[in-house]
Design a binder for these strands. Structure first.
Lengths: 337, 337
DNA sequence: CTGAAAGCGCTTACAG
DNA sequence: CTGAAAGCGCTTACAG
């Protein structure tokens, strides 16, 4: 691989000048630039990344940390979609992304290594279950970072989130407006922000209509298909006529349980999910669900992080993206009266 | 962040010695090692990655390239699972992974930058649709690389694959043994290795039983759920009593089409998929499918690549992992006669 | 077993 | 607009 030095020699200029050319420094004469560029192209020269980041003090690499709590749910396509949003935005800004799937076995070592070895300029954390330990490490690394999904208890960090509460309210409100009277819910983990917020939205939707909350109609899941399946079976004993499920994977599990119990959806039980994964529209029946712009969350998080890195400022970035209720067959809104 | 130099000063030794200690060089006295380590720990020192890789000539970073052809199918959880296998193995060997999802817009730039800037020590390519261009770039970068899934036409590269042909043969053979007489197939793209190999296995299973191949019973898909759905609808006109579908996502689409057509699975039409995604066991009815050890492919590819990097040798690594037919309800083997 | 020194390939004030 | 020089934080022969 050619080096800066060789390019300089072949172009008959100094290394400084070559450096300026490849970094688009305006203080270079057009003639010189042209001369240098031609040999850069001829040799297919690429600056050495390590040398560059050592000298410049930054790497144009972003770290993506997916904590181990999330890994469990990794058959959920959400993460692929999120990664796509992040990756595309990085490419657009000439950044690269390093990926760390936290394995519980390596989590501690990983955090230290990643955060303190100077490799990355900033960190995106998929924050479904971010421990205090990680958060502390993040803070004292001095790196810029941003969470995808707010932290359940700390508000002093940058994040991109969606309107989880409002989305849930809208979904439950919609079921109530269809005349459903026993609206149950399968929540996410009530230690996670989306779990908490969607649960809160459910409660608020009931309360705002003067309805009381029946604890028997609330079951806590963990966002996995299996927990939706078992959650639904548990709910069935209390005869709900509708269920708001806090994500699509669990909703799919719920549909499976209903099918096994020979209950019709939406005639006997209406179901609404959350996420609008590609799977939702193809479920039987097609799943009414609250769409969150997952790919866009990834893109916005990345964009924001890059801004923060390149234009350091005080102040927190807390961005909340809107959701949208996608009405399909499973909620009964399309039933002929 | 502390530097080697500071550690050296505080430990009262030279930088060389500190370097030896943190690199586990045996030529250090136990006393010195202990002294140095205590200050390393006290300051929570981490060697600067860029400096290290500039000086040492390697980075302990592996690149994972997912070509753009694959991105389309990215709602398929296969890639998440693959990434998990890769990531875990990297952690176990103290490597990190950089991720590039090829966006068609950036593909060309990406390849050059990644491959020639010295950042990574080797490359894993998820090779569903790897272009000649990428392959050429890979070769003349001089980097070690390995494909996950063999290349459809070139055999002069390292790869990890599964027994696609044998797996397909077994699946189709199984259907024939159940007494199915019009066994159709929805193939993957016939430009991709798994598409070709599973199609070949289908043909061979028929031929080896002296059966003729009916072109009307063969439809080409693209591994997406949608293509399985439309493929099945197309097949229905020719009244198959069984369908071997080349992956689970398409099989799910096929089941959806059968449900819409009010055909019973497996009574009217038996269905067998390929992959054994978590979804397969939870389909209605549970899907008989050929399991491929996806996570293990990722792990083996990573392991092999690291071996190649650390112990360069001539010779190609071509590893083929076994598959296993998972018999569930959809193939009819569990029907009462 | 330990240290002094050169070098990895860049960037970036500083002069001119 | 251009160049000489210092420096980024490590590793690695080479001596001793």
């Amino acid at each position: 691989m050619p080096t800066l030095e060789e390019i300089a020699e072949l172009s008959d200029v100094s290394r400084s000048t070559v450096s300026r050319v490849i970094n688009d420094d305006p203080h270079v004469s057009p003639a010189t630039r042209k001369k240098v560029m031609s040999v850069v192209r001829r040799l297919n020269y690429q600056p050495h990344a390590a040398a560059r980041s050592l000298a410049a003090g930054h790497s144009r690499i972003l770290g993506l940390i997916v904590p181990s709590g999330v890994t469990i749910t990794f058959d959920d396509p959400m993460y692929s979609i999120l990664v796509r949003g992040i990756s595309a935005t990085c490419m657009g800004h000439n950044y690269s992304v390093m990926l760390w799937l936290a394995d519980p076995d390596y989590e501690r070592r990983m955090i230290n290594q990643i955060l303190r070895n100077g490799l990355i300029d900033g960190v995106i954390v998929s924050s479904l279950s971010i421990s205090e330990e990680i958060l502390d490490a993040l803070f004292d690394s001095g790196l810029s970072f941003i969470l995808v999904g707010r932290h359940p208890s700390r508000d002093d960090v940058n994040y991109v989130d969606v309107e989880n509460r409002r989305g849930a309210q809208e979904a439950v409100g919609h079921l109530l407006r269809q005349g459903r009277e026993r609206v149950a819910t399968i929540t996410g983990p009530l230690t996670s922000a989306p779990g908490i917020d969607r649960h809160t939205g459910y409660i608020e939707a009931l309360r705002s209509r003067g309805l009381s909350v029946d604890e028997h109609l609330i079951v806590e899941g963990d966002f996995s298909e299996a927990s939706g399946y078992y959650g639904m079976r548990q709910l069935l004993a209390h005869e709900p006529d509708a269920v708001f499920v806090a994500n699509d994977m669990m909703a799919l599990g719920g549909l499976r349980a209903l099918r096994e119990a020979d209950l019709r959806v939406p005639e006997d039980v209406a179901v609404v999910g959350y996420d609008d994964l590609p799977l939702a529209a193809r479920a039987t029946p097609p799943l009414t669900t609250v769409r969150q712009p997952i790919q866009r969350m990834g893109a916005v998080a990345t964009q924001t992080l890059i801004d923060i890195i390149e234009h350091p400022t005080a102040g927190l970035h807390r961005i909340v993206l809107p959701t949208e209720l996608m009405v399909r067959r499973s909620c009964g809104a399309m039933l002929q009266p």
